[in-house]
Simulated assay, not measured.
Amino acid sequence: MKPEDILQYCLANLEGTVRTESWGESGIFYNPGGVLKRGVYVLTIKEKDGANDAASRLDRPGVYRVNLGLRKGTYARLFGALPARPPKGGVASVDADFSAPDRLIPHPVYAWMGWAAVLNPSPETFEAMKPLIQESYEYAREKFAKRRRGVPAGI
Rank of each mutant, 00 (worst) to 15 (best):
A117D: 06
R103W: 08
N120S: 13
K88Y: 15
G114L: 07
A76N: 15
G73D: 15
W112I: 01
D102P: 05
W115V: 11
A54L: 07
H107F: 02
K88F: 14
F98Y: 13
A128T: 04
L78N: 04
A117G: 04
K72D: 14
T125L: 00
T125G: 01
P61M: 13
P83R: 14
V118T: 10
V66D: 03
P61D: 06
L104S: 13
P86D: 05
L82P: 01
K48Y: 08
R85N: 00
V63C: 02
G69W: 00
R57Q: 04
A96N: 12
P83S: 04
E124S: 12
A54D: 09
R85Q: 08
A100K: 00
A55K: 07
R85T: 03
L70I: 01
G89Y: 15
F98T: 00
N67E: 12
A84F: 13
N67A: 15
L119K: 08
A84E: 13
S99E: 07
P121G: 10
L70P: 11
R77T: 05
V91E: 07
V63K: 03
I105Y: 10
Y64Q: 04
A96W: 09
T74A: 06
S122C: 09
H107K: 01
P101C: 10
A111G: 02
N52R: 08
L82N: 10
A117M: 03
R103D: 14
L104H: 12
G69E: 08
A81L: 13
A51M: 15
A100W: 00
S99F: 06
V91R: 05
V91T: 08
A111S: 05
N67H: 13
P121N: 12
G73I: 01
A54H: 13
D49E: 10
A76D: 13
A96L: 09
E127I: 02
A51G: 15
S99I: 01
P121I: 06
V91S: 13
L104R: 07
V118R: 01
S93G: 09
Y64T: 03
F126R: 05
G69P: 07
N67W: 05
R103C: 15
R65E: 11
V66R: 02
A128E: 13
P121K: 07
M113P: 08
S99M: 01
V118G: 04
E127G: 12
D95G: 06
P61K: 15
G50M: 09
P86Y: 15
P108C: 11
N52W: 12
P86V: 06
G50E: 11
E127N: 10
Y75D: 10
T74D: 07
V109F: 11
R85M: 10
A117C: 11
N52T: 15
A84S: 12
L58I: 00
T74I: 01
R60K: 08
N67C: 15
A51Q: 11
V109M: 05
D49G: 07
A111D: 08
H107I: 02
S122K: 03
P121V: 07
R65D: 06
P87C: 05
T125M: 00
D59T: 03
D102Y: 02
A76W: 14
S56F: 09
D59C: 04
V63Y: 03
Y64S: 03
S56H: 06
A111T: 02
V109T: 08
Y64H: 11
